[in-house]
Write a protein that binds this DNA or RNA. Structure first.
Lengths: 145, 145
DNA sequence: CTATATGCAAATAGTTTGCCTGTTA
DNA sequence: TAACAGGCAAACTATTTGCATATAG
């Protein structure tokens, strides 16, 4: 529908702003990400993207993800020592990692935002801030061990 | 000196609290970490630890780091898509990653702390919070490209 | 003593690279 | 029609595992 057209236009513009091109592969990868609620790894995204685009390669998935990160359509989420995860939600929020079940949850931040917390030394320039939390999710916490 | 004795005692206790043993290797790895100002990777730590303990293996370094993280003597720092880094500074602070030179800087947080920023959903239990920042350090920012 | 930790080497992720071909603006 | 992006396979880097031996409590 029309929403689709808008997304596509924004998509092309965002990429162009960073000197990057809109390609079929980048569109598919982004679509896959928008459909996820979990925070998939490059491998997860590769598998899901192959459903609509069987010939895509893992190297291209990495390339697409790098492009989407560079133009601020997607952000990387690093939590444990495993694979990097990706998140298409660019609104300010943070990630909660459950140490028991391994799930990653989006958690809202209070109004003031991350920047209010930090006093950068003179001359430092901030482009991105990320907050990540660890603990037990409501389900795992209730299973008192 | 006496400080040494104190550190060792705290070290043994911290490990014991988590049901872990104090070993020569864990002591050396921790000592190496305490001597660093940068935020070394497991590989960096391996190389430095070999200077005082030539027979240590990389698998043991990972084991030691996991043990030190588990008993809260050390924290992991994950920033880019490369190797995990380690930090022996457990006071509340965050990490600034310079996108140009790749250095990691410690940055203080304001008094309120990270927890004031976050409203966890009911039933969630928080054990650790980490803030990481990206941008340009004062040196790289001044070299306007 | 015995559970826990180490050393080694090989296995397994996770990510990047190079080179040639295809596609976008 | 350039410059940029994709496909493939191989290279590389980061981390984990299994098993025999050593060591801490």
């Amino acid at each position: 529908v029309d929403q689709d057209h808008t997304v596509t236009k924004r998509f092309v513009e965002k990429l162009a702003n960073s000197g990057l091109r809109s390609t079929t592969q980048r569109q598919h990868v982004y679509t896959v990400l928008l459909e996820t609620t979990d925070h998939p790894t490059a491998e997860d995204i590769f598998i899901r993207t192959k459903q609509t685009m069987p010939d895509i390669s893992i190297a291209t998935v990495y390339n697409c993800l790098d492009a989407l990160v560079k133009c601020d359509l997607v952000r990387q989420v690093k939590i444990n020592r495993g694979a990097t995860r990706y998140c298409p939600n660019m609104r300010e929020h943070c990630h909660f990692f459950c140490e028991e079940c391994g799930k990653v949850y989006d958690v809202d931040l209070m109004a003031k935002g991350v920047r209010s917390l930090v006093r950068l030394p003179d001359g430092f320039t901030l482009t991105q801030a990320e907050v990540s939390l660890k603990g037990l999710c409501q389900f795992c916490a209730s299973v008192t061990s």
